[in-house]
Design a protein around this nucleic acid. Structure first.
Lengths: 220, 220
DNA sequence: TTGCTTTTCAAACGTGTGTATGAAACTATC
DNA sequence: GATAGTTTCATACACACGTTTGAAAAGCAA
């Protein structure tokens, strides 16, 4: 079986290219050129371009979800089944941010690929993505255990906002750097994680009621 | 001159299709079919597909930025040059959210198109986008006026997070709805705006130090 | 009307794409 | 070393895309 060198060469090249340029801008010929294999190899090993993308996405999804859940489990074990909300949030957004940010060498194609996949929704990925909801529900449940007082609505909004901040920081790190003239250092991965966790925690706990029912008036 | 009916028919159809399906999934033939005009009309009136997209984006950018700035100016005028931070944030994210969320009829293709454009960065748009930074700087300045004590770093992170939350709420409203089994109502536009504003305000003011220098330790 | 410009239209062109083919090269088992 | 199975390769195919073309139609001034 020999671990199929060609197969993995294609996978790695495709992942890197998709992460760098996005799905729309990468052709099969780009991939085989980068992997230094023949054009027909993709269809031979994967069947089609879409199946290649799907395999990539499924593999990485599973790995990311496992990493998140491992961190969550560890945190909950440490607190006898109830982790502080900060730890839950850290388990949720840490893996992606650690993989995507940071100076050069330590950036992972895998994490950046997943961000791309979550942005550019293309057909082969769309179907698989539904499972993510089940995964996120586990985090919602953990958050509920951490904050027994909070309503489901607030929990879900907090989860949503935490992902939004982490996500956009990866996506638009360049804009933030330029906008702030380098004052916001997205290469300080731990700092970014703590900042997102802090804000999300505030959103969930701070002020008491951060939008708890009063859709009332306001706004001119 | 007659207002060039064909031209605007193409623009409207293109905007709607791009907003619905994204740039990668819409062909010129789709557009002319929806606009009920001949295929060659696009090249005749706009020169190329990219120029059509660029015109669409420039027009809508200007309109959105003007709307934001008008709200900002109004808020600052009301407070003699210094608006409460909530009002500044509301001026920043309100226009987009009002245009994108809400039940059916009141959703605007324009706002949804702009969200698409901010997600799927395609060549014709990339170049123009740099101007957005200058626009956002005006909001950073207004925020600095509202919160004289805060560091630039915190200001920019707050701006960034506010946009992130608003943005992702539009992009992934469906996921949030499904995840929360409808408990999070994204059709309650005012409620969503106030929630984002509240969290962003907390991020900027709450807790005192939401990540103010201590990159120290934490996290295994 | 006439003559000129502007706009529409059907059809075709060239290119880049994902995919298929069939022969050649390789690998392993007997 | 011959044979069968697997993998590679150059090449070609079919198709969809953005764009071009040249003629027909419409608009409009005199």
């Amino acid at each position: 079986m020999s671990t199929d060198l060609t197969r993995t060469a294609i996978l790695r090249a495709a992942e890197r290219l998709y992460a760098d340029r996005g799905f729309g801008e990468v052709t099969l010929r780009d991939i085989v050129a980068a992997a230094d294999v023949n054009l027909a190899a993709v269809n031979y090993h994967f069947g089609s371009k879409d199946e290649l993308i799907a395999e990539l996405f499924v593999t990485r999804s599973i790995a990311l979800n496992r990493e998140r859940l491992n961190e969550l489990k560890a945190a909950e074990a440490e607190g006898n089944g109830r982790a502080p909300i900060e730890a839950v949030l850290r388990a949720l957004i840490g893996p992606t941010l650690r993989g995507c940010l940071g100076p050069g060498s330590e950036r992972s194609d895998a994490a950046r690929f997943m961000i791309r996949a979550s942005i550019e929704t293309i057909p082969p990925i769309r179907k698989i993505k539904n499972r993510e909801i089940d995964h996120l529900r586990k985090f919602a449940a953990a958050m509920r255990r951490s904050l027994p007082g909070k309503s489901d609505e607030d929990i879900y909004w907090g989860l949503h906002f935490a992902l939004a901040m982490a996500h956009q920081t990866v996506r638009d790190s360049e804009r933030l750097t330029r906008l702030s003239d380098g004052k916001c250092d997205v290469d300080d991965v731990i700092g970014v994680i703590e900042r997102v966790v802090a804000v999300a925690t505030l959103a969930l706990t701070g002020g008491g009621a951060a939008g708890s029912e009063k859709t009332a008036a306001r706004r001119r």
